[in-house]
Write a protein that binds this DNA or RNA. Structure first.
Lengths: 111, 111
DNA sequence: TCCTAACATCAAATTTATTTGATGTAATTT
DNA sequence: AAATTACATCAAATAAATTTGATGTTAGGA
């Protein structure tokens, strides 16, 4: 039997849980400084905080705070190597969130 | 002469103006109540505040405030008809912002 | 072992966003 | 014309996010 592709997909209406989850993710995106961090992370595979600091005009504790917000929203990942913490974008998550157009603006390596 | 579509669009790196603009848009999205409003607006072409009020558990002045945030971010539009103000989604803007996947969650009529 | 670099975390101060209840205004109804 | 509906706006109160400077922790080097 042929499986119909519905024109309108109302199978997955948004739930309160979705609202809560996406609120957090959009909050993480809703800050110029964090958008800039994302933009810089998009340039490389992985960047340590010590390399990030001179690229961005921000005291270290502040940078650390913003990285944490992004991390908790699962928009970036953290990997410890020795003394250094390397951060990288969670591309999959970001692409699930942002339009292609927006990915092109903020994640130039995506296009 | 044929116009080429570039495979990689690195022509438009993000600027500070982009950061500012998208900060505002993401801020508007970064709230459960506003996501719920968007979700409700997606059900109809256009909804007046008086119909919205009973659908959403919120004092009128609060609803008005949140609609304004969405309006200023250009995520929704307003049209006055007599005594009523009708609000509708700015689908084009939303699709320029959100992934297809996310559109399906919040804007079911999109899928 | 002691020192330093590379961070994270914390508490207090500050800024920004949201909520609330009251008031204002314009269109409609009576 | 007065009353009512459908909003927007405002100011004060509250809540949440951000910033700052200080302190804590861990790993590596001298």
């Amino acid at each position: 039997m042929k499986k119909e592709i519905p024109l309108v997909n109302n199978m997955n209406p948004a739930t309160n849980l979705d609202f809560e989850k996406y609120e957090q993710k959009f909050k993480a995106l809703a800050d110029q400084q964090r958008l800039q961090i994302i933009n810089i992370l998009a340039l490389k595979e992985s960047v340590c905080v010590c390399d990030l600091t001179p690229m961005i005009d921000m005291p270290q504790s502040k940078l650390s705070y913003h990285l944490k917000i992004l991390l908790e929203a699962d928009l970036i990942q953290k990997e410890k190597r020795g003394t250094w913490n390397y951060y990288s974008l969670n591309i999959k998550e970001l692409r699930g969130l942002l339009s292609d157009q927006l990915c092109c603006v903020f994640l130039p390596s995506c296009c």
